[in-house]
C-alpha cells in the first residue's frame, strides 16, 4: 500500500523538479541584461541619430553625441543636428537631470520620463539599464518573435520612478537578450512598442545599435534610433558638468 502511494508522489516530485528546471530564473536574466549593457570602469560614448516619422507632423532628424559613465550613472546628450537646436543638452549627474538651452544659456530641471526633442524616445532610454532593480516578474509564457523562440515576460514596476509601470518583454531564449518591449501606462494602455533587432558585441558587453520605437497612441508615428561611432575611451570628468555645456556652446 505504502509503495502505491509513494510511486505517484515520486512522479509528481520528478515532474515538478523537471518543470522547475525548465523555468529560467528571470530575475537572473534581467540582471544579466543590465550587467551586459553596463560598462563598469569604462566610459561610453556614441553618436546617436533619432529619426522620427509622423504622418501629420512631418519628419524630424536629430543627431546627438552621448557621453556616459555607468559607474556613477551619469550621462550627457549634446545636440549636433538640426542646426537650429545645436548645443541643446541634457545632463544627468547625482540624480539630477538638467536640460540646457544654448539660446538663453539657461538650465532647467527635467525628468527621465520626458521625451527627447519631440521624438518617441525618453530620457530614461539613454540611461544605464536597471530593469532588474526597477521591475519584478509577474508572469511569463513561451512564444515566437520572427525567427526566434522567446520568453514573453510581464514586468511590473517596483517603484514609481520608472517611465512605464508595466512592460511585457520578449527575451531571446538563445542568448537572453531583450528583443522587444511593450510598455504600458498605469491604466494598462499600451503606450510604446520598442524593438531592438540589432545588438553589437564588445568583449562580453552588448550595445543595442538600432532601436525602433512605435508610438502606439499616434498611428504611424515611429522613431528609429541608431548608435554609431561607439567608443569606450576615457571621457574627461568635466564633460559631465554644467560648465561643459556652457563652454562648448561659446
Amino acid at each position: 500500500m505504502k509503495h502505491k502511494i509513494f510511486i505517484p508522489l515520486f512522479l509528481i516530485m520528478i515532474t515538478s523538479l523537471a518543470s522547475a528546471a525548465e523555468t529560467p530564473d528571470f530575475k537572473a536574466i534581467l540582471e544579466l541584461n543590465d550587467q551586459r549593457q553596463t560598462f563598469e570602469n569604462q566610459d561610453f560614448s556614441a553618436t546617436i541619430t533619432f529619426i522620427s516619422v509622423d504622418p501629420e507632423e512631418g519628419d524630424n532628424k536629430s543627431t546627438m553625441v552621448m557621453f556616459r559613465n555607468d559607474d556613477d550613472d551619469k550621462f550627457l546628450l549634446l545636440t549636433l543636428e538640426p542646426v537650429v537646436d545645436k548645443g541643446v543638452g541634457i545632463l544627468r549627474v547625482d540624480d539630477n537631470l538638467w536640460q540646457y538651452d544654448p539660446e538663453s544659456r539657461k538650465f532647467t530641471h527635467t525628468s527621465l520620463k520626458d521625451m527627447i526633442q519631440g521624438t518617441d524616445a525618453r530620457n530614461s532610454d539613454m540611461r544605464v539599464s536597471t530593469l532588474s532593480e526597477d521591475y519584478e516578474v509577474t508572469a511569463y509564457e513561451e512564444g515566437k518573435l520572427g525567427a526566434f523562440d522567446v520568453w514573453i515576460v510581464t514586468l511590473n514596476a517596483l517603484n514609481d520612478e520608472v517611465t512605464y509601470p508595466k512592460q511585457i518583454v520578449y527575451i531571446n531564449k538563445e542568448n537572453n537578450l531583450i528583443l522587444q518591449a511593450k510598455e504600458y501606462s498605469l491604466t494598462g494602455r499600451l503606450m510604446r512598442s520598442k524593438y531592438t533587432p540589432k545588438y553589437e558585441k564588445i568583449n562580453n558587453k552588448f550595445v543595442a545599435t538600432t532601436i525602433l520605437i512605435v508610438d502606439e497612441l499616434v498611428k504611424g508615428k515611429k522613431t528609429q534610433i541608431t548608435f554609431k561611432d561607439i567608443s569606450l575611451k576615457d571621457i574627461p570628468e568635466e564633460v559631465f558638468s554644467k560648465n561643459y555645456l556652457e563652454r562648448v556652446n561659446r
Binding site: V65, A147, E200, V207, K228, D229, Y244, V248
Partner: peptide, 26 residues
C-alpha cells in the same frame, strides 16, 4: 526585423574621445 541573429561584433571608434574634439565638438 527578427529574421537573423541580429548580432555583430563592434568596431570601436575612438575619435570622439579626443579631448580637443570634445571641447570643440559643436
Amino acid at each position: 526585423m527578427f529574421s537573423d541573429t541580429g548580432l555583430g561584433n563592434l568596431s570601436l571608434d575612438n575619435s570622439t574621445s579626443n579631448t580637443s574634439d570634445i571641447f570643440n565638438i559643436l
